[in-house]
């Protein structure tokens, strides 16, 4: 039983990272921290892909003589693409954060939501009940 647990340690790492990312997303109001949480969350999935591509005892997937067993290269290739996507997402998220800071003067999401709500309340007040 214990052995099983350690055999599958890569999954536990993945699950831990994922939950950490999730927790960060839920618990922190700072937009930058949210993006970091998102990155941790994505990394967990990247790890999953990379770890399952490893064939125990297998070599790097480079064609060479006298090597019979290769690790599976496909997940690595896939995850390269996914990392690119992740980087793009992060970049966009950071860019949005900059613009939000310019527009709202804060990067605390709770404050931003409150400002949005206040703006609407104000408009409703102004127009009266119709």
């Amino acid at each position: 039983m214990m052995l099983d647990f350690f055999d599958l340690y890569n999954y536990w790492v993945v699950i831990f990272l994922m939950m950490a990312g999730f927790y960060t997303l839920i618990a922190y109001d700072n937009l930058i921290k949210k993006i970091i949480g998102l990155n941790i969350f994505q990394s967990a999935v990247f790890m999953l892909y990379i770890s399952v591509g490893k064939v125990s005892g297998g070599s790097e997937p480079i064609a060479a003589d006298n090597i019979e067993l290769y690790s599976n290269p496909l997940p690595h290739v896939l995850i390269l693409t996914a990392i690119v996507v992740g980087v793009a997402t992060t970049a966009l998220g950071l860019a949005l954060t900059i613009r939000i800071k310019e527009a709202y003067g804060t990067i605390n999401e709770n404050d931003i939501v409150q400002m949005n709500r206040d703006a609407e309340a104000e408009k409703a007040q102004e127009w009266g009940r119709e």
Binding site: L25, L31, G93, A103, Y104
Partner: peptide
């Protein structure tokens, strides 16, 4: 409106979680 920025950011978070 500046609200579109926060909406876009929130969608980014949610969309990325969905994608992941």
């Amino acid at each position: 409106d500046r609200r579109s920025l926060s909406a876009a950011f929130q969608y980014l978070i949610m969309g990325t979680i969905g994608g992941t």
